[in-house]
Simulated scan of single mutants.
Amino acid sequence: MVKIGNIELGDFPLLLAPMEDVSDPPFRLVCKENGADLMYTEFISSEGLIRNAAKSIQKLDIFEYERPIGIQLFGSDVETMGECSRIATAAKPDLIDINYGCPVKNVACKGAGAALLQDIPKMAEMTSAVVKATHLPVTVKTRLGWNEETKNVGEVAERLQDVGIQALTVHGRTRAQMYKGEADWTLIAKIKENPRIKIPIFGNGDIDSPEKALDYRNRFGIDGIMIGRAAIGYPWIFNEIKHYFKTGEKLPPPTIAQRVEATRKHLEFSIRWKGDRLGILEMRRHYSNYFKGLPNFKEYRMRLVYSLDFQEISSILDEVSIAFDGFLLEKQEIKVEYAGVD
């Protein structure tokens, strides 16, 4: 049984990665219903939270169905991160997560996210401040290092465990790699093999099929897997992996009707949470992902994107369900379109 503090996650949990502009409550709903064991909010700026910025405050919203769920924070100032930990704790998540992995310029170049990989003492100090400011378990997500010459995640794991984190997720790329090349899990395996390391170690990067998930579980010995990009437009991946682990057989891909149902549910919750106009506008980015690879879908996608009326969008989705009834669409690779996808 894998545990983070007193949170029981099963024998080999599947985690939904925190992704900016993606893993909001509506997206988390469809992932939870399809087998995600632990989820995180989008990352929340410590500076934004201290200033009571509306977008940062809204990201604190969590719902009972989501549990266990963590709130992820990022920032560059130790004192501010400690204060944000107290604010986030008041929102009553199950854990607090710190982002030391985001590679994008507007985060890393401001001394936050993956930038802390260049200053391990400060990373340890900041992590300690967050741990001391909350009674909740604190976890961390990071990368292998800043670049090829500074793959220091082994040291990071020991230092952060020493100051009190209760789980670590490692994305198998450096900051310099961004999302290019193949994720390297060998250093993640070495952390797990380190006799000093007692906390759960989760691997992240390039898991996009049940076969790969099983292969990486067996080869690298990690305690669980975090899935990010592969779940965008395809929340079914969690249950597909679990079924494959249990039976050795692959589930059939979701039908068009199931894709339409998930899209509609996602949209409905988006509207309830964000309001009619914003809920519809922010759903636009998801339509192409739910139906990626569907032939002659462009006409429907354009109509979905330009409509601002829920009933009209719902009718268009019904048309899609009828027009492509019986068509089985295999999972397609999702292009990284969102700044905070790590």
Rank of each mutant, 00 (worst) to 15 (best):
G279L: 07
I313N: 05
E268F: 06
H266W: 09
I222M: 14
R219M: 06
I227V: 15
D276F: 05
R264V: 12
Y244G: 04
L294C: 05
V320K: 09
S315W: 03
G293M: 00
S321K: 15
M302C: 04
S314D: 15
G233H: 13
I232F: 05
R229I: 00
A257L: 13
L281R: 15
P295F: 04
G275E: 14
G279F: 12
L294A: 06
I322S: 13
G221F: 10
V336C: 02
Y244W: 11
G224C: 04
R264T: 12
F310Y: 15
V305A: 06
G233Y: 14
K274L: 12
E261S: 11
E319P: 00
P254A: 04
V260R: 13
M283T: 11
S315R: 14
K242F: 09
K242Y: 05
I222N: 03
G224A: 02
F245I: 12
F297Q: 03
F310V: 07
I227N: 11
V260T: 09
D325Y: 12
F238S: 02
E282H: 10
G293Q: 02
N296M: 10
N218K: 15
K331D: 02
F269N: 05
I316T: 04
E330R: 11
Y234K: 05
R217Q: 13
E330T: 02
T255V: 01
K265T: 11
I225S: 03
Q258F: 05
E299Y: 11
T255D: 00
K265P: 00
I241W: 01
K331Y: 02
E249R: 13
G326S: 14
R285D: 10
I241T: 03
T255A: 04
N289F: 13
L329Q: 10
L294Q: 06
I256C: 06
F297S: 00
R264Y: 13
F238L: 04
Y306Q: 13
I334E: 09
P253F: 02
G221K: 06
P253M: 00
G293N: 00
D325T: 08
S270T: 12
E282C: 00
N296Y: 12
Y300M: 06
E240H: 15
G248E: 13
R259L: 07
F238Y: 14
V320A: 01
E330A: 14
V260N: 10
H286F: 15
A323M: 05
Y300S: 07
I313M: 11
K246R: 15
L267W: 06
I280Q: 12
A262K: 15
I237S: 02
G224Q: 13
I280A: 07
N218Y: 05
Q332F: 08
R259H: 06
K265Y: 00
S288Y: 08
R301S: 10
V336N: 13
K250C: 07
F310N: 05
Y287S: 04
S315L: 11
L317K: 10
L278M: 12
R285N: 04
F238P: 03
I222A: 01
F324R: 10
S314F: 08
Y234G: 02
V305P: 03
P254T: 05
R229K: 07
S288I: 08
P252C: 01
P254E: 09
Y216W: 04
F220D: 08
F269P: 08
F291R: 03
P295H: 07
I334L: 00
Y287Q: 04
W236C: 01
G248H: 09
Y300N: 08
S315G: 08
R303I: 11
L317S: 08
F324D: 10
Y234M: 01
T263D: 05
Y300G: 06
R229S: 01
